[in-house]
Design a protein around this nucleic acid. Sequence first.
DNA 1: TATTGTTATACTCTATAACTATA
DNA 2: TATAGTTATAGAGTATAACAATA
Lengths: 169, 169
Amino acid sequence: MAEKAQYEELIRQFSAFGAVKREMGRLLPSDCPGGSAAVLTLLGRHGDMRISKLAELLAVDMSVTSRHVTHVAERGWIERSPDPADKRSRILRLTPRGQDRLDEIAERTTQLLAHRLSDWTDDEVGQLSRLMARLRASFDDCRSPAARPPAPTGDEQSPREPLVHPVHP
Amino acid sequence: MAEKAQYEELIRQFSAFGAVKREMGRLLPSDCPGGSAAVLTLLGRHGDMRISKLAELLAVDMSVTSRHVTHVAERGWIERSPDPADKRSRILRLTPRGQDRLDEIAERTTQLLAHRLSDWTDDEVGQLSRLMARLRASFDDCRSPAARPPAPTGDEQSPREPLVHPVHP
DNA sequence: TATTGTTATACTCTATAACTATA
DNA sequence: TATAGTTATAGAGTATAACAATA
């Protein structure tokens, strides 16, 4: 348990982080805003899924997810095929063109980070990653305490499902 | 210099951070959205200043800052007094009512963090603060390389000016 | 001419609520 | 009745550009 002044300092850092986020957003292609990029990234990382699952990973409302998905689907970056197990659902899948778009975005963003964080050590980048993952987990845990395993205790970080989506299926 | 996979992981954490930010925003009073809270916080931390300075600290365009300032001024939380040294400018100052509002917001947000991060050590909270401050600095440095001291090298964190605004002046 | 600040406009992201279709 | 998804609407944040007043 930390002191109040430390929390206030942390909150200021949260606020200032917006500037970093906006600079990252500025290098996205104009036809692929942040929401679309997030959809492509999560589909590339976790593989095919339905909208409700994507909404959970994005941590936004399903209605928001639906709009992002429509945007990327209209550009041919994903396909929505019917779910044989549930006719209400559709399964989202990255298309080859979507994978290309994702690769391009990943290339741009990692280059920006490599440039900005050129004087950071490998370990420092890892530390920031880990702490931010844990921060997200700490907030998630409090959201639905009943729907989670008893005591996570450890440092569990990012992906709950390290699935890898096959490139160009 | 870190590996590409590490940067990609960090980018995913940046994206996921939005959920934390939104949850923090949800506990703000409805008449004091995030932009207004940021104005009050920075005025409380750095003391009286003009809009252009505030825009720099917020790292947003001055037009955006102007709107936020108008919002808080309309509610009597700050005063805009003429700058004797430059008739184009006005000096922003927190009012007692603004200070009360700020205290209330700080109380709510620190309580939320204290609850969510109850199992974090003092040191871990400090680490995250430091790394996020350095992240922001790394991005700032690249924005206007000519307008900065030659080689910051160190871990310099948050406030460039640790001024403290007198409470209830 | 350059700078400070304001306003108008447009775009992105988000949540809530109402709705359809299916379970 | 409950759930998956869509759409309409509203609100917050931001950037760009045009503008006024002053330096």
